[in-house]
Lab assay of single mutants.
Amino acid sequence: HHHHHGSGALAALHAEGPLAGLPVTRSDARVLIFNEWEERKKSDPWLRLDMSDKAIFRRYPHLR
């Protein structure tokens, strides 16, 4: 159930192989992290948004 927010940013994801479903670039990863943060913020208003490279690598090590 993907609803768009204002920016309408869509992340490019790997379609197949071992990385299927994972973001292709760091900016794609940022979109995913932001979208998930927006969702989680509803139940956790104090949740901090962390889109640093460090956060991205921790989450998606293949982007190193």
Rank of each mutant, 00 (worst) to 15 (best):
H1G: 11
H1L: 13
H1V: 12
H2I: 15
H2F: 12
H2N: 10
H2K: 10
H2D: 10
H2Y: 12
H3M: 11
H3W: 10
H3R: 09
H4M: 11
H4F: 09
H4S: 10
H4V: 09
H4A: 11
H5I: 14
H5L: 14
H5C: 15
H5F: 12
G6V: 14
G6P: 12
G6Q: 12
G6L: 15
G6E: 14
S7N: 15
S7F: 12
S7K: 14
S7T: 13
S7C: 14
S7Y: 12
S7A: 12
S7H: 15
G8V: 08
G8S: 10
G8N: 11
G8Y: 07
G8T: 11
G8W: 06
A9F: 13
A9T: 15
A9Q: 13
A9I: 15
L10V: 15
L10N: 13
L10F: 09
A11T: 05
A11V: 11
A11C: 05
A11F: 04
A12T: 11
A12D: 11
A12L: 14
A12P: 03
L13C: 07
L13R: 05
L13N: 03
L13T: 09
L13A: 04
L13Q: 04
L13M: 07
L13V: 12
H14M: 03
H14E: 04
H14I: 08
H14G: 02
H14T: 03
H14L: 04
A15N: 12
A15H: 10
A15L: 12
A15P: 13
A15C: 11
E16Q: 10
E16H: 10
E16I: 08
E16L: 06
E16D: 14
G17M: 02
G17R: 01
P18I: 07
P18S: 07
P18C: 05
P18N: 07
P18M: 06
P18D: 07
L19E: 03
L19D: 04
A20S: 08
A20P: 02
A20C: 09
G21M: 04
G21H: 04
G21S: 05
G21I: 02
L22N: 03
L22F: 05
L22G: 01
L22H: 03
L22S: 03
P23D: 00
P23S: 00
P23T: 00
P23V: 01
V24D: 01
V24A: 05
V24I: 13
V24K: 09
V24S: 03
T25K: 05
T25I: 01
T25N: 06
T25P: 00
R26D: 06
R26K: 15
R26Q: 07
R26N: 09
R26P: 11
R26V: 14
R26S: 08
R26F: 11
S27W: 14
S27Q: 15
S27K: 12
S27T: 11
S27I: 11
D28A: 06
D28E: 03
D28S: 05
D28Y: 02
A29N: 00
A29K: 00
A29G: 03
R30S: 04
R30M: 13
R30E: 08
R30P: 00
R30I: 11
R30L: 09
R30F: 05
V31R: 12
V31P: 01
V31E: 05
V31G: 04
V31Q: 12
V31L: 13
V31K: 12
L32N: 02
L32P: 00
L32W: 02
L32F: 04
L32K: 03
L32H: 04
L32C: 07
I33T: 02
I33D: 01
I33S: 01
I33H: 01
I33L: 11
I33Y: 02
F34K: 08
F34E: 04
F34N: 04
F34Q: 06
F34M: 06
F34R: 09
F34L: 07
F34W: 12
N35Y: 13
N35M: 15
N35A: 13
N35D: 07
N35P: 00
E36N: 04
E36W: 05
E36G: 02
W37L: 02
W37C: 01
W37G: 01
W37Y: 08
E38I: 15
E38T: 13
E38Q: 15
E38P: 02
E39A: 11
E39N: 08
E39K: 09
E39D: 09
E39V: 10
E39Q: 10
E39T: 10
R40T: 06
R40N: 13
R40I: 06
R40P: 01
R40Q: 12
K41V: 14
K41A: 10
K41G: 05
K41Y: 08
K41P: 06
K41M: 08
K42P: 06
K42G: 09
K42A: 09
S43H: 12
S43G: 10
S43E: 14
D44K: 07
D44E: 12
D44Y: 10
D44T: 05
D44P: 05
D44Q: 07
P45R: 08
P45N: 07
P45M: 07
P45K: 08
P45A: 07
P45W: 05
W46V: 09
W46K: 14
W46G: 14
L47S: 10
L47E: 08
R48N: 08
R48M: 10
R48G: 08
R48S: 08
R48C: 11
R48V: 14
L49Y: 06
L49M: 05
L49R: 02
D50A: 04
D50C: 06
D50H: 04
M51C: 11
M51L: 14
M51N: 05
M51A: 06
M51D: 06
M51K: 02
S52N: 03
S52D: 04
D53S: 06
D53Y: 07
D53C: 08
K54S: 12
K54E: 15
K54P: 07
A55Y: 12
A55F: 11
A55D: 05
A55L: 09
I56C: 02
I56D: 00
I56Q: 00
F57D: 15
F57T: 11
F57W: 06
F57M: 11
R58I: 13
R59W: 05
R59P: 01
R59N: 06
R59L: 10
Y60P: 00
Y60H: 01
Y60V: 00
Y60N: 01
Y60A: 01
P61N: 02
P61S: 02
P61Y: 01
P61I: 02
P61E: 04
H62G: 08
H62K: 00
H62S: 02
H62N: 01
H62L: 01
L63Q: 00
L63A: 00
L63F: 03
L63K: 00
L63Y: 00
L63M: 03
R64A: 12
R64N: 09
R64C: 09
R64I: 13
